[in-house]
Design a protein around this nucleic acid. Sequence first.
DNA 1: ATGGTGTATGAGTTTAATTCATAGAATTCT
DNA 2: AGAATTCTATGAATTAAACTCATACACCAT
Lengths: 297, 297
Amino acid sequence: MIERTHLSIIREVSRLGTLTEAANALFLTQSALSHAIKKLESQLGIKVWSKEGRNLRLTQAGEHILSVANRTLPQLEHTEHLIEQIAKGKRGSLRIGMECHPCYQWLLTVVSPYLEQWPDVDLDVKQRFQFGGLGALFSHDIDALVTPDPLFKKGLTYLPVFDYELVLVTHEDHILADKPFIVPQDLNNEILITYPVETERLDIFSQFLAPQQCSPYKHKTIETTDIMLQMVASKRGVSALPAWLVEQYSKTLPIKAIKLGKKGIAKQIFIGLRESDVTIEYIQSFIDIASKHSTTQ
Amino acid sequence: MIERTHLSIIREVSRLGTLTEAANALFLTQSALSHAIKKLESQLGIKVWSKEGRNLRLTQAGEHILSVANRTLPQLEHTEHLIEQIAKGKRGSLRIGMECHPCYQWLLTVVSPYLEQWPDVDLDVKQRFQFGGLGALFSHDIDALVTPDPLFKKGLTYLPVFDYELVLVTHEDHILADKPFIVPQDLNNEILITYPVETERLDIFSQFLAPQQCSPYKHKTIETTDIMLQMVASKRGVSALPAWLVEQYSKTLPIKAIKLGKKGIAKQIFIGLRESDVTIEYIQSFIDIASKHSTTQ
DNA sequence: ATGGTGTATGAGTTTAATTCATAGAATTCT
DNA sequence: AGAATTCTATGAATTAAACTCATACACCAT
């Protein structure tokens, strides 16, 4: 069996020329190298070197071993270096799953300071999961899940990262725009625009309309927040989004936010993690930075 | 230090699923593997596996080690095999990569006299490469590359082995069958059958149709030459193949070869080698035999 | 010859790897 | 729920290997 030491020895000897020097470079005695190679030779049934006077010349077999040494040793050294970084907590991969459409805007504000602080962390954001965000966490397809529903399961933890109020968005000239708040019946004649997910996962349905058995005149779905708000701004419908997001867009678009019900709808966003990961430094740091970028942002 | 045993252990465990089975495969006890990995983990300061119930799941660090194992162990095993052959006084192994579909038929005619002359050379033919034929040559996954594109790189040499003419193949009753040669426009209403590779790598496209901005009525792809010619023989389309190949098949199938353009399309096939290998006797001999089996065959 | 420099080798020592026996953990069976 | 099964983990004892030391031997230059 060709072992790593054999590769190192052959590489060093052909780099430095003599066994003695190679032995020094490897912090071993000349005797050790001699014995090691001798044993290898007897195992493989070949000679590694032939002696030409007092220099060693690699045989054909020796050349093959040197060649494999030059190809594989650097790879081993590279992974050892990589793993050292992982051990120090400096490197790793953080794949974030998003189960909350509007949170994408918020995530972007978290990501840039994070990447600055952790340049060696591989960050990735995923938005579609074959077996739901929870399944993705369990099957290690993602490492963190941004979600409004903290479905507690053994082996997972959730940490709240920010609170916001869900509001109705209308054009600023809309009939409802001047009300201090709206009631479910107010939407009976409106076109409601939402993200394309099941209605059970849309709070405007599950927490506002459904309890009063109301439904909008029409329900349209749109993938992206930008287009959604463009539609609202061109009076093609109303939507329900986080208040902070509406406030941000209202600087450039003629839109307005209205409370949903007298008390409004309060939402909380969590980050779910596998319990075994919470101690990892670069993951903790992500939670920290995420928490700091809460509503006020 | 990551040793070869660690690589083997991690590879076998991820192949077989359990430490116990891996231990059997490696002719060691389960305890030995457990101790070995434990020691590695303490040296590197990381975990290789995390236990999920009773299964082991590789950590990120573990994945890196597995990846380096899959890259380096086969190389070590191959050189050991090579050296074993050298020790026995036999020659070695010749792994040929093919980047040229129809050349397979030609290769078969080369292989049999070669094997007769070199009974102890282990011959292997590979047709799929993760990083292209060139990458396979450099990473020692193959020893020789049969290709129409001699992409010169430092450390490689190419030797031309045979020339042939690329021709159109049609049914012998086809409308085009009586022409002395065809022009690109003649294919506008034809179904063209080719091997399933990128059109840039198909000479009928890159050297014949594309310069005149022509394209066939339809483009179908088929893996094997036999089936391809069966299709042509049953009037389901036309194809482009080496003249010598068509000539051979035309003895048994109602097909005919037609020149592509007035001058025809001349092709040249090369064998690429690592420069360090060109002096090896059994490789030189392969080139010799290959060159002798050129067009006339 | 002689000193200098390098390799080879046997014997003894140190270190590492392996096994054995057994405990613990998770899963399946009844 | 408890028993049987099937893995992994671990400490202690054993076995094997790697390494050093001391020294012999080979080559070359002067």
